[in-house]
Amino acid sequence: MVTVKDMPGILGLTDSQSLDIYYKMVLSRAASARQRVLQRMGKGSITYSGEGHEATQVGTAYALTPGHDWIFTYYRDVGVVLTIGMTARDVLMAFFARKEDISSGGRNMPSHFSHPKLRIVSEGAPVATQLPHAVGTAFAGKLRGLDEVSMVWFGDGATSKGDCHEAMNFAGVHKLPVVFVCENNQYAISVHWTKQMAVENVAVRAQGYGFPGVTVDGNDVLAVYRAAKEAVERARRGDGPTFIEAKTYRLVPHSSDDDDRRYRSSEEVEEWSEKDPIPRFQAYLEGHGLLDEKTRDELTKKAAEEVDAATEYAENAPLPDPETALRHVFAEEEVA
């Protein structure tokens, strides 16, 4: 496991970038927590959120150039899309399935992100189907002589799927600029990783495809960032893919329909709460004199306000027109 215990600056991050990373993590947490509250109030049918994954999501996405590199998220990646440039309002608009929801206009479930300008590609719900797409954009980039990188995120369950294997093999054979990020939170819904794989670190599979695999502490945002930065640089200079396995933990149930008490103990959840990546990074920043209580409170307040405003806007935004359900099955003629 790679961990970073050095000064933050060693990774090329400025102080304000370090605080920005921290803020993105706090904002992700706030947007997720809000959605779960709203769902329990009956204001939305379902939520998927990623509390606990913030270091992995923000740390990997921060290594990319938004709008230039390609993003293939899965349904837990609130932290990724906020880092790349989506706003809390975008996230809440998807939660409320509003007409102006940029991801899908109310068609896809919440947290199934899409943002063409930011090159965040729309995702389906079946697991691992987005991996070959990431390989495809990288393949096109290579054919066209571009220096774009594709990054794709998925859970530990996804590693069992045929699509994962086919995508990694293709990327390996053609040395494509893809970064595979496995957010290994140890459970595919209720199924423990020991029933998913017979290896301690699934990153070892990368060598079977001829490229490096690295296992990092997914709750250490700087360790994640360093691995991602290296992988992105490697991809950008034409040296091919990297597989990053970030070991982390989902602090909440799989979705609002899931009751995680039936498959894991509250002691286990409690234990991982102590490793929560946000207080951990906070303590680290404080330890290096980059954050004090005042700034911390300001950032927390700022995130809360951003989520409040987003909620208010989205809740009052219009529903989709019913007849739009018939549109966009195929390309539409441009209306002058």
């Binding site: 989709p320 359900a325 018939l326």
Partner: peptide
């Protein structure tokens, strides 16, 4: 109708 069944938003789903 011949569209992918079905969208998430209740109003869209019910319409189809």
């Amino acid at each position: 109708p011949d569209v992918p069944i079905s969208p998430y938003a209740g109003v869209l789903e019910e319409y189809l």
